[in-house]
Amino acid sequence: MTIWVNEQVDPCGLMYACIACCDETQAQECHESFEADLTETQKQAGWVARMRLVQSWDEVPVNSLKLD
Protein backbone atom coordinates (compact mmCIF):
# COMPACT_ATOMS: atom_id res chain seq x y z
CA MET A 1 0.00 0.00 0.00
CA THR A 2 1.22 3.49 -0.82
CA ILE A 3 0.08 6.42 1.29
CA TRP A 4 0.72 10.02 0.30
CA VAL A 5 1.40 12.34 3.24
CA ASN A 6 1.08 16.09 2.66
CA GLU A 7 2.61 18.34 5.28
CA GLN A 8 2.82 22.08 5.78
CA VAL A 9 5.80 22.80 8.01
CA ASP A 10 6.87 26.03 9.71
CA PRO A 11 10.47 27.36 9.87
CA CYS A 12 11.11 25.56 13.19
CA GLY A 13 10.15 22.22 11.66
CA LEU A 14 6.80 22.01 13.42
CA MET A 15 3.95 20.55 11.43
CA TYR A 16 1.16 23.07 10.89
CA ALA A 17 -1.11 20.83 8.81
CA CYS A 18 -1.02 17.22 7.62
CA ILE A 19 -3.34 15.22 5.37
CA ALA A 20 -2.73 11.61 4.38
CA CYS A 21 -4.55 9.62 1.70
CA CYS A 22 -4.24 6.61 -0.61
CA ASP A 23 -5.38 8.40 -3.77
CA GLU A 24 -2.51 9.92 -5.78
CA THR A 25 -4.71 12.47 -7.58
CA GLN A 26 -6.26 13.65 -4.33
CA ALA A 27 -2.79 13.85 -2.75
CA GLN A 28 -1.44 15.96 -5.63
CA GLU A 29 -4.41 18.34 -5.37
CA CYS A 30 -3.86 18.63 -1.63
CA HIS A 31 -0.15 19.38 -2.15
CA GLU A 32 -0.95 22.08 -4.70
CA SER A 33 -3.45 23.60 -2.26
CA PHE A 34 -0.94 23.55 0.61
CA GLU A 35 1.65 25.18 -1.66
CA ALA A 36 -0.79 27.83 -2.89
CA ASP A 37 -1.89 28.66 0.66
CA LEU A 38 1.64 29.70 1.65
CA THR A 39 2.26 33.40 1.23
CA GLU A 40 5.52 34.70 -0.22
CA THR A 41 6.40 36.00 3.25
CA GLN A 42 5.91 32.53 4.73
CA LYS A 43 8.02 30.93 2.00
CA GLN A 44 10.81 33.44 2.55
CA ALA A 45 10.64 32.74 6.30
CA GLY A 46 11.14 29.02 5.63
CA TRP A 47 7.65 27.52 5.54
CA VAL A 48 7.39 24.51 3.20
CA ALA A 49 4.70 22.28 1.75
CA ARG A 50 5.99 18.78 1.15
CA MET A 51 4.58 15.50 -0.01
CA ARG A 52 6.13 12.19 0.88
CA LEU A 53 5.26 8.53 0.43
CA VAL A 54 4.98 5.97 3.20
CA GLN A 55 4.02 2.30 3.10
CA SER A 56 1.96 2.00 6.29
CA TRP A 57 -0.55 4.03 8.29
CA ASP A 58 1.84 3.52 11.23
CA GLU A 59 4.26 5.92 9.47
CA VAL A 60 1.64 8.68 9.19
CA PRO A 61 1.83 11.37 11.90
CA VAL A 62 -0.78 10.85 14.61
CA ASN A 63 -2.28 14.34 14.29
CA SER A 64 -2.94 14.09 10.53
CA LEU A 65 -6.30 14.03 8.81
CA LYS A 66 -6.52 10.58 7.24
CA LEU A 67 -8.58 10.22 4.07
CA ASP A 68 -9.18 6.75 2.71
Rank of each mutant, 00 (worst) to 15 (best):
L67D: 10
E24N: 07
D58V: 14
C21A: 09
N6R: 00
F34S: 02
V62S: 14
P61F: 11
N6P: 01
S33C: 03
C30R: 04
A17H: 08
L65T: 14
E24Y: 07
D23T: 06
L65I: 13
L65C: 09
T41S: 01
Q28F: 09
D23R: 07
E32H: 13
C30T: 11
E32M: 13
H31Y: 13
H31V: 03
W4Y: 15
A27M: 02
K66W: 09
S64Y: 08
A36W: 03
W57G: 13
D58G: 15
D68R: 15
W4I: 01
Q28I: 06
E40F: 02
A17V: 01
W47V: 09
V62N: 13
E59N: 07
V60E: 07
S33M: 05
D68Y: 12
Q44E: 13
I19P: 00
I3P: 01
N6M: 01
L65G: 08
Q26V: 06
M51L: 10
D68F: 10
D68N: 15
T41Q: 00
T41Y: 01
L65S: 13
A27V: 05
E35L: 00
T41R: 04
D37A: 04
V9I: 15
D58K: 15
E24A: 12
T2P: 06
L65E: 14
Q55K: 10
A49V: 01
R52I: 08
D10C: 04
V5Q: 04
W57D: 12
V60R: 04
E29S: 09
Y16W: 11
L67Y: 10
R52W: 04
K43D: 02
L53S: 06
A20R: 06
D58Q: 15
D58C: 14
R50Y: 00
S56Y: 10
E7A: 09
W57K: 13
F34L: 04
C22Q: 12
D10Y: 08
K43F: 03
W57F: 13
L53E: 10
E35A: 05
V54W: 02
W57P: 07
P11V: 10
T41P: 00
A17S: 12
N63T: 14
C21L: 14
A49C: 05
A36L: 11
G46D: 06
L67A: 08
L38I: 00
G13R: 14
I19T: 11
M1I: 04
P11M: 05
S64T: 12
L38G: 00
C12D: 14
H31C: 05
C12Q: 15
C12K: 15
K43Q: 11
T25A: 11
D23L: 02
H31N: 12
D23P: 08
D23S: 07
E32S: 13
I3H: 05
E35C: 00
C18I: 10
D37T: 01
A45R: 11
I3Y: 06
R52S: 12
C12M: 15
M51S: 07
V54R: 02
V48Q: 07
E40S: 01
V5I: 10
W4R: 01
N6A: 00
A45V: 02
L38A: 00
L65D: 12
C30M: 08
W57Y: 11
E40V: 03
A20G: 13
Q55S: 12
T2K: 04
Q44G: 06
A36G: 04
M1V: 10
N6I: 02
M15Y: 07
Q42P: 03
